[in-house]
């Protein structure tokens, strides 16, 4: 029961993007299309779960003072694995994500979860936490991408959403990303206020 709660908290209640506002750079940069968003989400989830496993497994060995550099080395190793795998099997995706694949290293969510959760909990809860946070990140990314791609090109995954719609190119470009996220955060605030 507790494990399920560790999993579901990342989805809505503590959603990394909308509620804690971490990991914003990749969220904006790669949410131009649904494909990029899902690719980035999958890559980040893999790194998050793997680094949570290793960090929580060696949490008693790492000296307190140098724990952050240790976490970064663990995370950077998994990011390198993802980089190489993606370049080998999904070259098109690797190309469109560009420098944002190596930049997963400095994605605050991953270091944040290693420091705040995995370094204090056992392996199993850490896996659930990583999965939940990763999925929450992916969901948020997909939502932003759906809005941007839908309004910016009129189709999602090459499926026409609105017939006879004149695409607003701005939504696919940089200003659209910032505007979408600003409004989504405002909506989140509104929902939180209603509940309270």
């Amino acid at each position: 029961m507790k494990l399920i709660r560790e999993f579901t908290k990342g989805l809505f209640k503590q959603n990394p993007i909308f509620v804690i506002a971490l990991g914003l750079c990749p969220a904006l940069a790669v949410s131009t299309t649904m494909e990029n968003a899902l690719g980035m989400g999958a890559a980040a989830t893999f790194v998050l779960v793997s680094s949570n496993i290793i960090v929580s497994a060696i949490r008693n060995i790492i000296p307190q003072k140098i724990r952050i550099p240790c976490f970064i080395v663990v995370i950077a190793s998994f990011v390198t694995i993802v980089e190489l795998l993606m370049a080998a099997y999904l070259p098109a995706l690797a190309k469109s994500l560009g420098i944002f694949v190596p930049l997963i290293v400095v994605n605050c969510i991953i270091l944040g979860r290693a420091e705040a959760f995995a370094s204090k909990h056992k392996v199993l809860p850490s896996i659930m936490d990583g999965l939940g946070m990763g999925l929450g990140f992916t969901l948020a990314l997909a939502l932003v991408a759906a809005i941007r791609e839908g309004l910016g090109s009129g189709k999602i995954f090459d499926v026409v959403v609105i017939k006879g719609y004149e695409p607003a190119t701005m939504m696919v470009l940089a200003p659209g990303a910032l505007l979408t996220l600003g409004i989504l955060i405002a909506v989140t605030n509104l929902i939180k206020k209603r509940k309270a």
């Binding site: 506002a21 701005m170 940089a174 200003p175 659209g176 990303a177 910032l178 505007l179 996220l181 600003g182 409004i183 955060i185 405002a186 909506v187 605030n189 509104l190 206020k193």
Partner: peptide
Amino acid sequence: TPKAFQGVAIAFVIASLMSL
């Protein structure tokens, strides 16, 4: 500023206009 937009949300909207 409208209540829901206070803080980070309005900052994003400003950034969007600057980027435009």
